[in-house]
């Protein structure tokens, strides 16, 4: 028998804005918190109503096993996240997970995290779990955003002892330009492993650089999903070996070489 997936009507414990249109929601979900691994996600939906119809896939920002809760960081972009944002503490949402694949442990002694926009949350969760390991490891976090106001998760990365380097499109903080501009120097002169999550153009660039730099690279992808559990086949991406992989099930974390980045 395959392992059961928890489907909960979880109480919203906390819900606050951390940057313009960026919210962190905390859900009372002990069963999900206990099993959650960095890179994984949950499906979230209001319990009532059919418009918007589909749940939203949100990656796990933090899992507090002892406290029995999970945190999700999301940006309000459309009807689904708008409805989610309206859930005040005390209300409940339907949530199921944890779902999908997780980041694998690094091979070398340096970890380079590359996050863009709302791709940052799973990298924060990963940095926290890596910091909890009793293995000496250097963690460099390269974080990109449109501008200073939309940077999220920076304090948590620093608390997890990550060396944070920032790039913004408008130069309002850190280097002006793409976050991937920071990547070659960050992997230099060390056995590094790259973990990336963010917009598809950024992931394509990271995959290309990871190959050029001959550095192991894992990338967490995003795709529109109806079910999140592997049934709808709506979230597929082209595999290098032909055919398609489901982002929800074979992913969201993929090895650099398993995806056909040219046709994605």
């Amino acid at each position: 028998m395959p392992e059961a997936i928890e489907l909960l009507h979880a109480e919203v414990l906390d819900h606050h804005e951390v940057a313009p249109d960026h919210w962190v929601i905390t859900l009372d979900a002990p069963e999900i918190a206990a099993g959650a691994r960095p890179g994984q996600f949950v499906m979230v939906r209001g319990i009532q109503g059919t418009d918007p119809l589909l749940p939203r896939a949100l990656s796990i920002y933090h899992a507090d096993v002892e406290g029995g809760c999970i945190e999700l960081l999301y940006r309000v972009v459309g009807p689904g996240t708008t409805r989610l944002q309206e859930h005040e503490p005390g209300r409940r949402v339907a949530v199921w997970g944890p779902l999908g694949s997780q980041f694998r442990l690094p091979e070398g002694d340096r970890v380079v995290l590359v996050g863009g926009g709302v791709g940052v949350p799973p990298l924060v969760f990963w940095a926290e779990r890596l910091a909890a390991l009793s293995v000496p490891m250097e963690v460099i976090a390269l974080i990109g955003a449109q501008s200073e106001s939309s940077l999220v998760g920076i304090d948590r990365l620093r608390r997890a002892r990550a060396n944070v380097r920032i790039a913004t499109d408008d130069g309002s903080q850190g280097r002006k330009g793409y976050v991937t501009d920071l990547l070659p120097q960050a992997v230099q002169s060390a056995r590094a492993t790259i973990y990336a999550c963010g917009p598809t153009p950024m992931l394509k660039a990271v995959a290309r650089l990871g190959k050029t730099l001959e550095t192991p690279t894992e990338l967490a992808l995003e795709a529109p999903m109806a079910c999140g559990v592997g049934a709808c086949l709506g979230c597929t991406v082209p595999r290098r070996e032909g055919g398609f992989a489901r982002v929800c099930t074979e992913g969201p974390v993929f090895d650099r070489d398993s995806i056909d980045w040219e046709t994605l």
């Binding site: 059919t50 418009d51 918007p52 119809l53 589909l54 009807p79 689904g80 529109p224 999903m225 109806a226 709808c232 086949l233 709506g234 979230c235 597929t236 082209p238 032909g242 055919g243 398609f244 046709t263």
Partner: peptide, 18 residues
């Protein structure tokens, strides 16, 4: 059949297209 390339699903009011 490998299935279609590109976007496969989109939400609509109280529904979806696949």
């Amino acid at each position: 059949r490998p299935g279609n390339a590109g976007v496969r699903i989109v939400e609509t009011p109280s529904g979806m297209l696949n």
